[in-house]
Design a protein around this nucleic acid. Structure first.
Length: 432
RNA sequence: UCCUCGGUAGCUCAAUGGUAGAGCAGCGGGCUGUUAACCCGUUGGUUGGAGGUUCGAGCCCUCCCCGAGGAGCCA
């Protein structure tokens, strides 16, 4: 078995060797306490002068924060240690002694965000950031497993695209030889094509939005999961999304309890994230927003204050369905019961973490889709291939898109999405 | 793009228009149980930049730069 800090309890009374970095140090005369981290956790290493050679003791005295080293010692149960386990050091080899102080110190005051963001490459080593990236990894695993178990095929959509799927003002433009291209802001149109080939598909990749948004819910580069399912009805889609949310949250939660505790997440909030979820119509949502004292007219989209007024009614994600078609995307299928409404759903997270999911039944009629493209003044040429999907074996289908970082932000209780991605790209920030 | 707030030591912050300071970090010393250790000593400054007002500007004025929070838009 590989020895690491996470499984030290299996090595009690044994001599072990670990490679890692010095997290912090407390000197107390003939006794030195080293907080040592190896990427899997942090453990206290005890160095007593009379038990080691002078040379080893001197190395422990001079080692600085975040210097890399290899330690050897004996694992011992210790009630006074936070982890319940400690290492009595026999020897230490310093691999790289930092000649300059590590810029980020451990202190009670929280440094300014700008400072931490400039040091993002080093900030990643801190306890909370390590925990958060582990939760991110587990969330991705839970999502992929969810689809794999249900026989979905992962189909990657292109990142370089010839045209917008919804307008061009929020797209990043790049040179494409003698032409121009745009970074993808959604893989949806492409996986609609894939779902007509493979039945049940999803894509999971980076998405780019050149929106000049400057809020805790926005990144210019983020990761999105977009499943697309052929022959599905709208009600079945809502059912599917409920299964999806419950499973990815509960799986991530159960795999990440220690990390979520480090992040000080209120776990009782996550206990509640189980079916059934509240499903309300746009019309009902408007009533709730008005009741809670926020201004809104029927027919308007929700802004941030409206979203908040709605969400405080629920302690689970709320599904808002059937928005007026004219405030939604061109490809959404009209509700047969009321042509002015779209068969769409937005899933809004509790506790103010914002919109997690946007989904819909797609238009499967050729003529209607063509008309919508024209109505939205989109270039018909660019959508020829997309219209072809309604020309050859058209079928009812639907899907949704979910922002990974917003979902992680909600699950882990981290207020700002910039911490939920290793190297965030934001308006005015592309370093490091 | 708009609105609001901010920029002083490595970090967090003080400083009535009148000698730029503290805590932490660092460095030197002390301590056999520290948990954000403690005690003694100590290094450290182009006050974001450029102009201006003034006998005198970190502080007042103008412009610029950078950042934060939010709005619209969105996941």
């Amino acid at each position: 078995m590989q020895q690491s800090i996470t499984n030290l309890k299996d090595f009690i009374s044994q001599r072990i060797k670990l490679s890692g970095w010095l997290y912090s140090k407390r000197e107390k005369g003939k006794l030195i306490f080293l907080q040592f981290r190896d990427g899997t956790g942090i453990i206290q290493v005890v160095v007593f002068k009379d038990n080691v050679t002078q040379e080893i003791f001197d190395r422990c005295k001079k080692i600085t924060r975040e210097s890399s080293c290899v330690i050897e010692g004996k694992v011992r149960e210790e009630k006074r240690a936070p982890e319940g386990v400690e290492i009595d050091l026999d020897s230490i080899e310093i691999l790289h002694l930092n000649s300059e102080d590590f810029p980020i110190q451990i202190q009670d005051v929280v440094p300014e965000v700008n400072f931490l963001m400039e040091q993002r490459h080093l900030w990643l080593r801190s306890r909370k950031q390590v925990a958060l990236l582990r939760v991110r990894s587990q969330l991705i695993y839970a999502i992929r497993t969810f689809f794999q178990k249900r026989n979905f095929v992962c189909v990657d959509s292109p990142i370089l695209t010839p045209a917008a799927c919804e307008g061009t003002t929020t797209l990043f433009k790049v040179d494409y030889f003698d032409d121009e291209a745009f970074l993808s802001q959604s893989g949806q149109l492409y996986i609609e094509a894939a779902c007509m080939a493979l039945g049940k598909v999803y894509c999971f990749g980076p998405t780019f939005r050149a929106e000049k948004s400057k809020t805790r819910k926005h990144l210019t580069e983020f990761w999105m999961i977009e499943p697309e399912i052929s022959f599905i009805t709208f009600d079945k889609l809502l059912d599917f999304i409920q299964d999806y949310i419950e499973e990815i949250v509960q799986t991530t939660y159960s795999n990440c309890v220690p990390e979520l505790k480090i992040l000080e997440r209120d776990l009782s909030k996550l206990d509640q994230i189980k079916r059934p979820f509240p499903i309300i119509s746009y019309k009902e949502a408007v009533e709730i927003i008005k009741k809670n004292g926020e201004q809104i007219q029927y027919g308007e989209d929700f802004g941030a204050p409206q979203e908040e007024a709605l969400v405080k009614e629920f302690n689970k994600p709320v599904f808002v369905t059937r928005y007026p078609s004219n405030i939604k995307a061109f490809y959404m299928k009209p509700d047969p019961a009321d042509n002015n409404l779209a068969l769409c759903v937005d899933v809004i997270a509790p506790e103010g973490f914002g919109e997690l999911i946007g989904g819909s039944q797609r238009i499967d009629d050729y003529d209607l889709l063509k008309q919508r493209i024209l109505d939205h003044k989109l270039p018909l040429d660019s959508f020829k291939w997309y219209l072809d999907l309604r020309k050859y074996g058209s079928a009812s289908h639907g899907g949704f898109g979910m922002g990974l970082e917003r979902t992680l932000s909600w699950i882990s209780g981290i207020k700002h999405v910039r911490e939920c991605i290793p190297f965030p790209r934001l308006l005015y920030r592309i370093y490091p």
